[in-house]
């Protein structure tokens, strides 16, 4: 039995369609990602799957329970970590956790044990008894994650779990999510607009844009849909000569000379790079440096939606990467 089966799920706010006939399913123990820019409809999908919003059309089954017919059982089997803050800042960390555990009818002894356990997981043991008001952003997020774990949900929804966190906290949260998924076999549905997060964590990714799923595959499956890899060579000698020679090869897709450097889009660089050196050697041309880039999820995203998901830093290197990327996609 699938952990989640979503069928033609649709949500309209007035005339505006925020989620447009989305279908997918998630297997037990899978780490599934919904990747898309702000406003794509990710949160709205989670709100429907967690019974907070009624779908306009379509529906879903979660651990075998229908969203409309059996919302109580659905709630029993899920946990969610919301995108926006959802703690009671007037209570202490421990009181927030106790509240949650009691709402799930977890008995007193078990409750104490689990609270200790989850506090330990997120490293908040010594801050448990101060008011959440006085927590930092990262501590609040960790407390929310701890809270989502207390009742051992079969399916855990994480809405942008690391939004706005520093790199170190983000790493440690990724590790928690991985461990949780491994140790408890929890199925995880995670939304994000960070490419590297989806790439690093997810078994499969659905790319969402304007309320629709536009691609669904494993991270490597998604990347393979691109035209090829990019190799960037710095040439010592006549660039146009080697460009012409490489242009003959059937595994070369495109060649872009660029002053002393040459960007080559090719299939399967692992196999074909020796042949590049051979060609250069035969022509008596030296190659003084070489750079590879495997396509990233970001490239896939640009290819599918025609836009980048967020501003790039304007460094020279990233500008260069962007150029290569655009060529790979053309």
């Amino acid at each position: 039995m699938s952990a989640i089966i979503v069928k033609e799920l649709t949500k309209k706010f007035g005339e505006f369609t925020a989620v447009d006939s989305v279908s997918f399913s998630v297997e037990p123990g899978e780490l599934f990602g919904l990747l898309g820019p702000n406003g794509a409809g990710k949160t709205t999908i989670l709100n429907m799957l967690t019974t907070l919003l009624l779908p306009t059309a379509g529906g879903a089954e979660i651990t075998g329970y229908d969203l409309r017919r059996n919302p109580g059982e659905v709630r029993n089997n899920i946990g969610i970590i919301f995108q926006d803050p959802s703690l009671d800042i007037g209570l202490t960390g421990r009181e927030n956790l106790e509240f949650h555990a009691m709402m799930y009818s977890i008995g007193s002894d078990e409750r104490k044990k689990r609270i200790r356990e989850v506090l330990d997981v997120v490293g908040l043991v010594d801050k448990a008894d101060i008011l959440v008001e006085n927590y930092s952003g990262g501590m609040k997020r960790r407390l929310e994650i701890a809270r989502g774990l207390i009742h051992y949900p079969k399916v855990l929804f994480l809405d942008e779990p690391t939004l706005g966190l520093d790199a170190q906290t983000r790493r440690s949260i990724w590790d928690h999510i991985r461990n949780l998924n491994k140790n408890y076999g929890t199925s995880v549905i995670l939304t994000t607009h960070y490419m590297e997060e989806a790439d690093y964590l997810c078994d499969r990714i659905a790319i969402i844009d304007h309320g629709k799923i536009i691609a669904l595959d494993t991270p490597s499956g998604l990347k393979n849909c691109l035209r090829g890899d990019c190799v960037s060579l710095t040439i010592e000698g006549r660039v146009e000569l080697i460009a012409a020679a490489l242009g003959e090869k059937e595994w070369v897709r495109e060649i872009v000379p660029n002053g002393k450097t040459l960007d080559v889009i090719l299939l399967d660089y692992g196999k074909n790079i020796p042949s590049i050196f051979q060609t250069a050697g035969n022509l008596g041309i030296g190659i003084s440096s070489i750079n590879f880039s495997k396509p990233s999820l970001e490239d896939v995203f640009i290819r599918l939606t025609g836009s980048i998901i967020r501003e790039q830093e304007g460094s020279r290197q990233s500008a260069r990467r962007d150029r290569m990327r655009r060529r790979m996609l053309r």
Binding site: T50, G72, D88
Partner: peptide
């Protein structure tokens, strides 16, 4: 207030009747 601070969502996703 709970609605604005997001805490009401936390209450309503629990299986509590």
């Amino acid at each position: 207030m709970d609605k604005q601070f997001g805490f009401l969502k936390e209450v309503m996703v629990t299986p509590a009747s």
